[in-house]
Design a protein around this nucleic acid. Sequence first.
DNA 1: AATCTAACCTGACCGC
DNA 2: TGCGGTCAGGTTAGAT
Length: 261
Amino acid sequence: MRAEARRADIRFPLPVRFVERLRGTRVNHVRRRAKYLLADLDSGETLIAHLGMSGRFSVVTAQGGFGFGDYVYNTGADPKHDHVVFHLSEDATIIYNDPRRFGFMDLARTDQLETTRWFVGMGPEPLSNRFSGAVLAEALKPRKSPIKAALLDQQVVAGLGNIYVCEALFRARIAPTRLSNSLSTAETEVLAQAIKAMLAEAINVGGSTLRDFKASDGTSGAFQERFDVYGREGQVCICGANVLRLVQSGRSTFWCEQCQQ
DNA sequence: AATCTAACCTGACCGC
DNA sequence: TGCGGTCAGGTTAGAT
């Protein structure tokens, strides 16, 4: 590939010699850890990318009659926020666009990824068998913060964001204000299972599209249609009560006082 | 050590 | 149409 950095930083500075370290490499494999995208390169390094809030990767090709520079999948993106461009073989170009620039990229040795600042201390993948009610209970035991804040902490469990924490707590019928160390064994078990089931369901229907999220094939997610509480302040819960909103550690929490104890 | 707050940015939306 | 205020999918640095 050949990379093009149109600015020296996104959220953080791009790594030293970013363009040079990518030049001529091939991508062996693409994977994910938490909310990080990982592209393993044949140079022995891995490109680490995080989309932040507004980042997106778009694939641009000349196939299907689109001319060079035309967007295939990123309808609505403003080209002035195209910060990094990867020119691949086969006439494919991958554009990183990010209006708010909360995303970031890094390069690290593939065999040293776990030691990078991004992954040190990170909790288990929620859909793996390394995550369970018992594991969650162990992580919550020493914590006095509200369970909402604990689940957002990537050291407790990796990859959950504001939407899925709200929805998981609703499904587990646990109030977001409950202190982490106050959950019973039964409750942590229910919560862990709720997280797994909810994520599996969300992935099945293509994730959640709030405003502009699109899958790599250009389709929108559908899980937002199944939200019980997220973004539904003032609307009626399935129980008939009103969905409430409160602010915890600077983030909106949506919940039902009736359903969640 | 744990936890909270502000900060990083732009854009969309709402009320006036 | 414009203006100011609020809010947004996340994470980190710094204060407490």
